[in-house]
Amino acid sequence: MEVILSFLTGSLYAAGLYLMMRRSLFKLILGLMLMGHAANLLLFTIGGLKRGAPPFIQEGMSRLTGDFADPLPQALILTAIVIGFGLNAFAVMLIRRVHETTGTDDLDEMRHADGPIR
């Protein structure tokens, strides 16, 4: 299954990057969110995929035994998901505020912050 998820991860990265190369603010944010998903999926895939072996210590046992899923990547992904949510929520609000301020959705018109001489 790692192979398939590897390809899926790559595809999500590709879709995300493609969206970020568009001129629309909205697509930019969409792309960022897809990239976030892609990174999480990558982390999950790299952690090793195990079916039906969640990292819970059963009642009566004192440690995980057998072929259990590596809990560490899961914890890392959980952290990354929540961090990603915070960043995305802020970014979503930002594009809305940017749209209100500039009156456009077109990133090509947002060049007041740079340009040849300023």
Partner: peptide, 27 residues
Amino acid sequence: RDAGLAIAAGGVVTATLLLATHFPQGS
């Protein structure tokens, strides 16, 4: 052009990930 670039970048990620998942890992 953008799609080509994006797919190539995705391909690099996939390739790296394929290599890494096959790598005998132990933690």
